[in-house]
Amino acid sequence: MRAAFYIPLAAFLGLAAALGIGLTMNMRLLPSALIGRSVPTFNLPPVPGVRPALSSANLKAGKVVLVNIFASWCVSCREEHPILMALAKSHVVPIYGIAYKDTPKATATYLANNGDPYQRIGEDETGRVGINWGVYGVPETYVVTKTGKIAYKVVGPISAAILTQKVLPLVRKLEAEP
């Protein structure tokens, strides 16, 4: 038929396809606004007797690190915990923890019961530092470059697949950079 028929039809189908893709997109997978930027400035107290404290200065010490935001009250953190433990044992990359909206006591108990994969832990009792990291749910895991820039973010529990396919290759690549 004629263009007068096909042009509006094509326009409609194009719009429907674009909106359809938009509707089926997973909103939770939005990239962090902080990717490519420096980690937020913070200085968190430690969990006494467990691990040294964590501040933004520790993330700019010339090492690629993972920052894992977790909480003792968070159920899906328990799901990823064995993976973090295995990663810590492999000594591939240090894991720093931010205990989000938790108490030092609860964090200490949680780590005593489940094992402690973290080299440093900052206790974010109010959740204010969490907001500075742009968290929208725990757990979240960030890959931080040698110069303290956020390179990647995993929302939700980290799986073995995400770890081996995305996180570890990126860590190796960043380690190779000056």
Binding site: A71, W73, K101, A106, T126
Partner: peptide
């Protein structure tokens, strides 16, 4: 297990 909601600070 501490599954209950976190303490309200705010």
């Amino acid at each position: 297990l501490g599954v209950a909601a976190p303490r309200a600070f705010a």
